[in-house]
Design a protein around this nucleic acid. Sequence first.
DNA 1: CCATAGGGTTAGGGTTGC
DNA 2: TGCAACCCTAACCCTATG
Lengths: 153, 153
Amino acid sequence: MGAPKQKWTPDEEAALKAGVRKHGPGKWRTILKDPEFSGVLYSRSNVDLKDKWRNMSVMANGCGSREKARLTLKRMNQARKQDERSLSVSTEAKSDEEMTEARLATTSSDSPQIRGSKRSIIRLDNLIMEAISNLKEPGGSNKTTIATYIEGL
Amino acid sequence: MGAPKQKWTPDEEAALKAGVRKHGPGKWRTILKDPEFSGVLYSRSNVDLKDKWRNMSVMANGCGSREKARLTLKRMNQARKQDERSLSVSTEAKSDEEMTEARLATTSSDSPQIRGSKRSIIRLDNLIMEAISNLKEPGGSNKTTIATYIEGL
DNA sequence: CCATAGGGTTAGGGTTGC
DNA sequence: TGCAACCCTAACCCTATG
């Protein structure tokens, strides 16, 4: 019928990038409502934006990180659950994301009550990581580019 | 990232249930302060407890109230196509899904952003920026390196 | 100011079609 | 088989209200 699977056009991708640059990643609804982008993205939902951004990010950094992780987990588990989200400071070679998480987790204090600030740190960190991942294409991250990228907060 | 989205463990769920049995639903702060549960729920806020209880309740009753589950219908739709996503902004009665989408798109106002407590993360922003500019690695900085740099505060 | 209720939004795993 | 687009929904955020 019409469009069971609406592919993203270059225009839409550009609008999404611009939107993220202006409002920051994670502000999908905000980007969607921005008159500057709503004209191009009118047929997309906030979830669509999020999903597309995820795909683009996966492309930007190392190559197939999402699929790789998914398949790896699929092959390995099945009836296996990995409870313990904290303190999995094993030394085996993990993905970059996991390493970062572990380090940050042990860096910030573990006292109960300051969860709020801890989460803020993680969120900011995530933002920076997004910036770096995406700016990897031009060839090297520099302060100015990342600052500009993050500015739209 | 690994855990910006902290999944509830069975232990935590059990503690929450026990807490509600002991203090009653709606006494989130009270449950949180109870020494009997604070050990397990220390990383949760009263709001987290409230939200989790809501999710659990939804599960308990006949399959979905908050996320109205027409899963059975959904399964059928999957087989077919739900064509014509663009065009016809009004016209015929669409699925609940799209109705909701439309409604959401017109609510709330603009320019919320940075308020009071969120200011603190700006400091970290600068910190990470400094890390990035100082690391100037060839090929771009990676997450681990930056995390390591920041760790040495 | 602090807590709760409730509507709204996002994150991330899962699924599907090409 | 791989990947891009799409779905599901737990977890989280925002705001109103007491």
